[in-house]
Design a protein around this nucleic acid. Sequence first.
DNA 1: TTATGTGAAAGCGTTCACAGCC
DNA 2: GGCTGTGAACGCTTTCACATAA
Lengths: 240, 240
Amino acid sequence: MSTAETPRLGIPDATVARLPVYLRVLNSLTAQQIATVSSGSLAAAAGVSPSQLRKDLSHLGSYGTRGVGYDVEYLQFQLGRVVGSAREWPVVIVGIGNLGTALANYSRGFRVVGLVDPDPGLVGTRIHGLAIRDLAELEDVVGGSGARIAVVATPAEAAQPVADRLVRLGVTSILTFASTVLNVPGHVTVRRVDLGQELAILAFHEHRRTESRAGTETAPSAVPALVSSGTGNTDKGMGA
Amino acid sequence: MSTAETPRLGIPDATVARLPVYLRVLNSLTAQQIATVSSGSLAAAAGVSPSQLRKDLSHLGSYGTRGVGYDVEYLQFQLGRVVGSAREWPVVIVGIGNLGTALANYSRGFRVVGLVDPDPGLVGTRIHGLAIRDLAELEDVVGGSGARIAVVATPAEAAQPVADRLVRLGVTSILTFASTVLNVPGHVTVRRVDLGQELAILAFHEHRRTESRAGTETAPSAVPALVSSGTGNTDKGMGA
DNA sequence: TTATGTGAAAGCGTTCACAGCC
DNA sequence: GGCTGTGAACGCTTTCACATAA
């Protein structure tokens, strides 16, 4: 063990969830031809505190230069290596409604290799040159592409059966938009994004606001704000 | 202050994020004409542990009956009251691409009162009877509807200017799908859903899996699984 | 002097275990 | 007996403060 080339397994989940954000900011910095960046600026752009950014990066290794900052390109490379975004993962999308279509048009960091939908009127349609295939051929599509990541953008009632088939086909990562909770074996990673739920959470915050405006005898107290701008800088001070 | 009718301000954010899930399960139980439910069943259906469900509900009040469980309809009512889903919040959607359209078709617990897009080819088109209006008229649309919740489903570069205008119009809750981090005043709640990022996180997990399969000299160690099925029941035991 | 990297402390969230009530 | 409600323990995440290096 000479130079610390070890990315070290065991990165906290919370950190993993933020790495793609950092990577995106770095991409934007590269586009602006910015070669070096400090933890303060990078953190501000990513909407986190500088110390959190440094702690996050420290889990991957020491890729910065003290007194200077981070070399954008190098850090970008290292992050890309860890996140796996460097390699483009094959992804299969099940359910080509508005949401599925939106995903199909995405193509950063991964490659859509399969589109599946049960609607006969949709089967055969092409998105970016890729034809939509029938749900019955799911086994073929997944098996043929070797995809391990799948997106479930079907109605709620279809989600679980589809997930079961996906898991049987060797899929180990699922992104679902269905409002139901998917039941999968422990070795499968599921991420659920529920648009209705996101709005319901916002509704709660509005509800709380109007309630406190009605003003019972509870202290007014400043609203904490779940996610605000990254203005609450800590550390020592912040560079302009 | 006699009976505990106080929903108590200061519910943990993590709990707030789960309440809509519980509410959805309760709706489904009502549809099945089920009158009573235990924390165990409800938790299983929601994909959380029974103790977590009970703790979550305990923040709202004591709405269950010991030895029996929860009255579905009553709990549904109380949860709806807290979440604010009972009242249908007016929502404005900016950016009517595939994502915006998907949102526009949603209509549970809130009411879409405005659709806005800069594309002249789209302006005038109706979704569920509501006409898409030009981005230039955003002030009119938001002001006229009194909406406090807005969805930003625009390309990344348009998100910040749109958010600025929304905030100026009195919007205090924003759901954004743009990959950039929105800069807003502290009193505004922002929730960001980045589809590309969700996939990037899954890609990381796949990356980690294949890496540990390649097996460097690091200990193999069982993969933790970020989100699995709720099979890991704790408490005492689990019913069927 | 600057800005990173990191132990230590503080803050949250989840799980446990059991008291309390039906 | 059964199941809820909840203090206490535990573990994870974030923040702080400073040692470290250019």
